[in-house]
Design a protein around this nucleic acid. Structure first.
Lengths: 125, 125
DNA sequence: AGGGGTACGCACTTTTAGGTAAGGTACTAA
DNA sequence: TTAGTACCTTACCTAAAAGTGCGTACCCCT
């Protein structure tokens, strides 16, 4: 009931306790935590998948946003693209090492959100 | 170099592998992973803080967005507000139990982003 | 001959998050 | 009297995110 008030470790290097405005981590966080970025990374945490599969799994995503999100994450070096010159086209996406590291932190977060979402969203308003 | 291809546990309850569009967790995730939501939660993970302190730490935030973000997170039951009827006004914010649970997952994520941001953002384009 | 699947790119429009600026209260200090 | 602090609210506006729809290339199936 009462506020926890635990100090919490926070192993960050923000010496002065300020999260600087121009910090590159803000940009990276924006990519990772974008509406569709999370879902794509999450989906790929289960292994290599192709375009159409990702489209199906991230329900509601438009083709434009899928392409855009994939491109951004690829530029960030979090996922890699394997295009096979076959007909019909086949392109597989998978996590890079860095992307996999990230997914290990992201998966539990989303799992927690999934488990607690109903209580939280219903409990209010 | 090569793609990892590890299956990854993924302890989620998405039986069919689809992340449903209307899922409440999408809304909750939007709040948590919003531009300022992350920073506020992160900041509060270090303990109770007041309005002006949060404003200073989340560099670049406007008063409007601070108020809005705090309100959303409070409605979600992630933070709690303690207003003291003193002059000048003093309002302290802290994480709730749920918010603290969440921060334990969020902190390492942001720490990772902070550690890897420079490499990632510079290495591209 | 026609329709459908796959993986996009491009242009256009809508929606929304966020920024800017001003005001408001209830004081205190100069 | 003017300024300043702390904690907001409200109205307005813009820039960025996201949606919509169209086109493409190539082949398969019927």
């Amino acid at each position: 009931m009462e506020a926890p008030l635990h100090p919490a470790p926070l192993p960050l290097s923000f010496s002065d306790g300020v999260f600087p405005a121009g910090c590159p981590s803000r940009t990276l966080l924006d990519h990772i935590t974008s509406k569709w970025g999370v879902l794509i990374l999450l989906s790929l945490s289960e292994g290599e998948q192709r375009w159409s599969e990702l489209r199906r799994r991230a329900e509601g995503i438009s083709e434009k946003m899928l392409a855009q999100t994939l491109k951004t994450l690829e530029l960030d070096g979090l996922i890699s693209r394997h295009a096979q010159p076959v007909i019909p086209p086949r392109v597989d996406y998978s996590l890079t090492e860095k992307g996999f590291e990230l997914s290990k932190l992201l998966v539990p977060l989303v799992a927690w959100a999934f488990d607690n979402a109903e209580d939280i969203i219903n409990g209010k308003r």
